[in-house]
Amino acid sequence: MGYWFEDPTLKALAPLALSSSIRGLTTIFNTPKIYAGFNVIPEGPVIGPTTMDALGPRCPKKKAFLVTDEFNQRYAKKAVQFLESGGFTTEIWANVLREAPLENV
């Protein structure tokens, strides 16, 4: 079995596709909506725009599945409190292993 990056065509195309020689054909600036700061997962009411603005309207079922590891469970719990304050039902799966083994996915 080979991996996708062992495909000879892709290997040949990778530098070409990204090379400056063809710059100007297509450049995609692809980023998430970013919320940054000490109050992005607030523990109480917030005045003004909040992270929830980006989540609530796009999730009609309001069901959130949180993926984390043992070490970060405490932060996942804070996120759960935040999501539940926005009407989400939540479930935490905290079994991610170090370096993301394929069989763990």
Partner: peptide, 20 residues
Amino acid sequence: FEPDLIMAVGGGSVMDLSKG
């Protein structure tokens, strides 16, 4: 569980595994 939101809370391994 059939979520409509998946939230990865952790380092690189957690976020990468969530993508998978």
